[in-house]
Design a binder for these strands. Structure first.
Lengths: 211, 211
DNA sequence: GTTTTAACATACGTATCTGTTTGTATAATT
DNA sequence: AATTATACAAACAGATACGTATGTTAAAAC
């Protein structure tokens, strides 16, 4: 029953795809490799041929998803200060649009949120945190640029604005992914973003005099 | 080895306490009843005497935690409108203080966040959502009262303020509980609340005329 | 004081999952 | 065309977890 190289790659992909669905439905720890094998239409032999064990399968699955967070935010610092806030808001909204439209990414994120870390998949968590840290730094810099030229409300520091944005996005997505997605993620999310960024931009009597 | 009623209640409580720690450390699905038994200093026989199975044990553990969310928010509508925002902010801050100080509640919340729902513990999720819904309604009413008398910024509707607050709290707690709690939850949380409520209160040029 | 029964501990049977090993047909190599 | 290595399937062995059944002791009940 030897298959050609292309066929083998197909089965490998079908295993990854099945693992994504099974992990999403049953949870990573409760799902057995036989569940994944049956969902993929193969036996455990195929899985053990392509992957060394369940952890390895999970890590490979995690590597297949390309997190486009950074690409979107990378260059926002180079924008003129007057457009920085607008650009961040648009980026976040666009990120919500993509998540709402991409079931693959929804499943991956849900799996990652519900994943019982602490045992053998520490590398995933560390990589996740590393990405988050870089993301935070970039947002800090962007908000600092807006702040330095008076486009950020006096109530907000760059750091506090970054955290407020992160927490709002995280809470929004947790609410939508972890507890049945019963509302329009993109619409409600962008509405919330609009209001939050409105308060970022709003220059009030208490606003500090810019630099 | 028959114990007195009080002793039996002690072992039951020790089992619940051990389950809380073990579920928190190893995850609900990967933790075995033998793990819990050893952590409690008993055998599985004791667990099966007091509880019918792992799901039942989990549900009983969930019932032990009294969620004081509602009590804090219940009567805020009766406050004078001028104090409503201040009271909600204080309540949320106080809730953060309690979570930061109560390791028991931290573990329960972490377990609930990481729990692979969808199989047999749907009642937990439904109860959680029911509490959340009531909480949302109360917040909506409170913000509506503030709005009706002109204490809520024109950028925010009662519903959008409720959601922003919920998402911020949820993201904050997820960040702290799910990924190692590496920052001061109460301090940073209350700082974020201060700024968010600052934008709630801030009356700008675009604010609508009250009443 | 005897009997009963509560509160467990211990032992058992079974299903399941994992990792490995062996078998095998076929694509690739020569 | 013969050989070899590949891509799996099938079988095997070990561990683990679950639920139950049975045993045991001491507290209650009478």
């Amino acid at each position: 029953m030897r298959r050609t190289k292309a066929e083998a790659e197909e089965t490998r992909n079908s295993i990854l795809s099945a693992a994504e669905r099974v992990f999403f439905e049953k949870g990573v720890s409760t799902a057995s490799l036989d569940d994944v094998a049956k969902a993929a239409g193969v036996t455990r032999g195929a899985i053990y041929w392509h992957f060394s064990n369940k952890t390895d399968l999970f890590l490979e699955l995690y590597n297949t998803v390309n997190l486009p967070l950074e690409d979107m935010i990378t260059r926002e610092v180079e924008r003129p200060a007057a457009e920085v806030l607008c650009y961040i808001e648009k980026s976040a909204g666009h990120w919500l649009d993509e998540l709402a439209a991409d079931e693959h990414r929804q499943r991956i994120f849900t799996i990652l949120l519900r994943c019982p870390y602490g045992d053998d998949l520490l590398p995933v968590l560390e990589k996740q945190q590393e990405v988050d840290d870089r993301h935070t730094v970039m947002l800090d810099n962007a908000f600092a640029k807006a702040k330095s030229e008076g486009f950020l409300n006096g109530n907000w520091t760059p750091q506090s604005a970054t955290k407020a944005l992160r927490w709002m996005m995280e809470g929004l997505c947790s609410d939508w992914l972890l507890f049945g997605r019963r509302f329009d993620l993109a619409a409600e999310g962008k509405d919330g973003l609009k209001r939050l960024f409105g308060s970022f931009r709003q220059i009030s009597a208490t606003a500090e005099v810019p630099g």
